[in-house]
Amino acid sequence: MKRINWNNIRLVVILLAVVFLYSFSGNRNETRWLEKSEVSFVQPENFITLDEVNKLLIQNYDTVTDIRKDKLDLNKLEKSLDQNPMIEKAEVYTTVDGKLKAIIRQKTPVARVYKGAKSYYIDTEGGEMPLSSSYTARVPLVTGALDSVEPSRLQQVLLYLYKNDFLKKNIIGIQVTPNGNLKMLSRNYDYVIEFGKPVSVERKFKNYMAFLQDAVKSKAIEEYKTINLKFTQQVVCTKK
């Protein structure tokens, strides 16, 4: 008569118990009600407020405690947040202890545009970003005939300024002339920088930084009315 292997039977029973407990725990976790929401921002600047994000998270509910986990569509929530003009990317998930969490990466402005009665930011991707009632970015102001310059060319200039710590602090304004030339204003000096067409961007800015370093040393910088960068081989200055 074949002997019963009680060790194998015990192993099967243990495995069935584990599966049952895991299934029971998972089902209980999915059907529990959320207790609160937590929002964190990747950047320190808050162009969109915590309250605004929370309202987007709970959407058709009065509070987060009215939401059951298994009734929550996380993909839909993320898409809803991503559609907000202040948000670049959102990640939404729930935790086992009943929290609804959202990690928000906001769009990054590189310039503020004044176009007629309209004012908005341009972000790092070249898109329009509305002004925020809770935070104001310190970025160059762009005015003038924006339609006379190719957007991708202007964006190249703005990104170069944004990525260069020195120029980011030095250049506070850009005016686009009707013929597509750029004029820039300095934070520390009252001369006008004649940049010309938005071409040879890196070369022109390197020329300007080299000129500025020498001019500050000689203390002649206060005498200049215009700094002309149109000629990539040299910087031409006009005195007051």
Results as ranks from 00 to 15, higher is better:
residue 4 I to W: 02
residue 7 N to E: 05
residue 8 N to K: 12
residue 10 R to M: 07
residue 10 R to P: 00
residue 13 V to E: 01
residue 17 A to T: 15
residue 18 V to G: 06
residue 22 Y to L: 15
residue 22 Y to T: 15
residue 23 S to I: 00
residue 29 N to H: 07
residue 30 E to S: 13
residue 30 E to R: 08
residue 31 T to K: 09
residue 34 L to T: 04
residue 35 E to T: 08
residue 36 K to R: 10
residue 37 S to R: 02
residue 40 S to A: 14
residue 43 Q to C: 04
residue 48 I to F: 08
residue 52 E to C: 10
residue 56 L to Y: 13
residue 57 L to W: 00
residue 58 I to E: 09
residue 70 D to R: 07
residue 71 K to E: 15
residue 72 L to S: 01
residue 73 D to R: 06
residue 73 D to I: 03
residue 80 S to Q: 12
residue 84 N to R: 10
residue 87 I to M: 05
residue 92 V to N: 07
residue 96 V to H: 07
residue 96 V to P: 02
residue 98 G to C: 04
residue 103 I to G: 02
residue 104 I to V: 11
residue 105 R to N: 11
residue 107 K to I: 02
residue 112 R to N: 12
residue 113 V to R: 09
residue 117 A to Q: 15
residue 117 A to P: 03
residue 117 A to I: 10
residue 118 K to T: 14
residue 118 K to L: 12
residue 121 Y to S: 07
residue 126 G to W: 01
residue 128 E to I: 08
residue 128 E to D: 05
residue 138 R to V: 12
residue 147 D to S: 14
residue 151 P to W: 09
residue 153 R to W: 07
residue 159 L to R: 08
residue 161 L to T: 08
residue 164 N to H: 10
residue 164 N to G: 06
residue 167 L to S: 06
residue 169 K to R: 08
residue 171 I to K: 01
residue 176 V to D: 06
residue 179 N to L: 09
residue 181 N to K: 15
residue 181 N to Q: 15
residue 181 N to F: 14
residue 184 M to S: 13
residue 190 D to W: 04
residue 194 E to P: 02
residue 195 F to Q: 06
residue 198 P to K: 10
residue 205 F to A: 14
residue 207 N to W: 04
residue 208 Y to T: 15
residue 209 M to C: 10
residue 211 F to G: 12
residue 215 A to C: 10
residue 217 K to C: 01
residue 218 S to I: 01
residue 220 A to D: 15
residue 222 E to T: 13
residue 223 E to Y: 02
residue 230 K to E: 15
residue 230 K to Q: 13
residue 230 K to C: 10
residue 234 Q to Y: 06
residue 236 V to K: 08
residue 238 T to C: 01
residue 239 K to G: 02
residue 240 K to V: 07
residue 240 K to C: 02
